[in-house]
Design a binder for these strands. Structure first.
Lengths: 334, 334
DNA sequence: CTGTTAGCGCTTTCAT
DNA sequence: ATGAAAGCGCTAACAG
């Protein structure tokens, strides 16, 4: 592998000039630059990342910390962020944290220390202590899906989303409205709690029952949603409508309803959250949120800070949600 | 951030000893090692990755090249690989290549040059030229989902899987069997072709019709599967059974069938591929493949090569598939 | 506009 | 078992 010295020698200039020419810095004669470029190409030269990192202190890398690469939502967010980062010339380091042990190890060792110019953390509700550790990294930190004082954050208004769903079902005249949540305990996501609280408030404000007997846990998965709905149906007085806080769970719930000969949108109404690809095809009423965009927005903010932008106050961007009414919601059948 | 010199000074030893002690190399007195460890911890020291890479020539990083982080299959493979790599102390660099342009750029610049000790490429059917470029990286390269001469590869027997599905439907007595494939042209995956060919062979061998008029393209997505099934149903003489080469498409197909009042498993049989989480809940007959395991297996092989193992012949591992018969397949109804 | 010269923070012989 | 010292390949002042 050719080094910068090989290029310099062959081009008849100094290494400094090669470095400048190749990185597009000013103060290089256009002719020289062209010449250096040609020689570098001939030699198939590419600057060693570790050498330039060591010398410059920059890594040209951004770390993304994510629970469950496997989940649709996170995959989308990652790919949104990845594209922005890649385009800006940054590499993406992936840290997947799928259980409490991994999380502990991650924060204990912070393997990304010194490896990234910025960090993007998805959905993990970073504790005060963890925030401290991340800040100690000395690079900009961005959060998607929840906030923490002092850090960039991008997300949606979960309360508003949940309220939209709840109010829609209330307006249709439902009196017993269930909730399929996803508590995912080991990683302690905040989203489920936030949505649940807002959801309950709407019910209470409308004089409707709410609470554990109308709620079930679906772990954010299709199978979990199916189980949760089945459980709700087995309760003494089952709901006539449910709000599932993810589309995947909502679709699982629809499956359960059909299995019980309860047509979604007729016997029981269902509202999901996300506007997953399946929602449209299945005619599922849902609270739509921009997903990839949360990743790309966060990545852009992060890069701005990397290149010196120092906002006066922590940047927090809230992307809009909206209710998409489709066929799975209707007035109660009786 | 403390450097190795700080630790050495404070511990009263040389930097060489610190380096050895902290990396667990031999020839360090146990007492010294313990002492150095303690001091390092006090100072919150972590060796700079770029400095050690530069000095040692190793990066402790593995790159994963993947199309569509967003797709269930790839997410699973990544997380399988990630776990093995993380456990072995390697970081994961993610390169997502979701269209032909990105692919071209990637191979033109090979941004991972010098950044990784090994490369894992998922599903991209690497052309001879691309294989050359990857080999030129000078690090072990592993492939998941297809093979190339000289490179490690891990996958399943796609022919066998497709045959299993086809034969099952033939045995049930179906005479017109459709195929929902996913050609995904821009990236030219080989999997769809392989499965289609094997599938057609079985039909032909059994004297049954096959070919384009019984096939439709579903792009590996739920919505695509739904469209593909709808298209098949609109043809002059629609199939009484279909094989979708992914579960997500199979589930989409089931949706289409229901919309046409054709109960899957009664009016029309459906077989999927993957054994996605949804398959069990939806009672979908499918060809099961180990997914995360393909990632972890490939990662392990790669790491073995990184640490010097030189197999005599290219390593190719084929993981087993099996047919799981569930409720969506039955003899033709008429 | 270009060259010289120090490092960046580690690893790795080679001595001792 | 430990230390001294020479780089690894690049960037960033500083001169000119």
């Amino acid at each position: 592998m050719a080094t910068i010295d090989d290029v310099a020698r062959r081009a008849g200039v100094s290494t400094a000039t090669v470095s400048r020419a190749l990185r597009g810095l000013p103060n290089v004669a256009e002719a020289t630059r062209e010449h250096v470029r040609r020689v570098a190409a001939e030699l198939n030269f590419a600057a060693s990342r570790s050498a330039s990192s060591l010398a410059s202190g920059r890594t040209n890398t951004v770390a993304i910390v994510v629970p469950h690469v496997t989940r649709w939502f996170f995959g989308k967010v990652i790919s949104g962020a990845e594209e922005v980062l890649r385009t800006a010339g940054y590499d993406v380091l992936l840290y997947s944290i799928c259980d409490a042990r991994a999380r502990e190890r991650f924060f204990a060792k912070l393997p990304l220390r010194g490896r990234a110019d910025a960090v993007l953390v998805l959905a993990l509700p970073v504790t005060a202590e963890e925030v401290g550790l991340l800040e100690g990294l000395g690079v900009p930190v961005g959060l998607v899906g929840h906030r923490a004082r002092g850090l960039i954050s991008v997300g949606i208004d979960d309360e508003a989303g949940a309220r939209l769903a709840a109010q829609h079902l209330v307006n249709l005249g439902h009196k017993r409205i269930g909730l399929i949540t996803g508590d995912d305990d080991p990683l302690r996501f905040t989203t489920p709690r936030t949505r649940r609280t807002a959801f309950r408030e709407v019910l209470r404000a409308n004089g409707l029952p709410s609470g554990p007997e109308l709620e079930a846990e679906g772990g954010f998965t299709f199978a979990g949603g199916e189980r949760a709905m089945t459980e709700l149906l087995s309760r003494p007085s089952p709901p006539t409508a449910v709000f599932a806080i993810s589309d995947e769970m909502a679709v699982g719930a629809m499956k359960s309803l059909r299995r019980h000969a309860l047509e979604p949108g007729r016997a029981v109404s269902v509202v999901g959250f996300d506007d997953h690809e399946m929602a449209e095809v299945l005619d599922l009423t849902t609270v739509a949120q921009p997903v990839a965009e949360q990743g790309s927005t966060a990545a852009s903010l992060l890069l701005r800070q990397v290149s010196g932008h120092r906002p006066d106050r922590p940047e927090r961007i809230v992307l809009p949600v909206r209710l998409i009414v489709r066929g799975t919601t209707a007035p109660p059948s009786s």
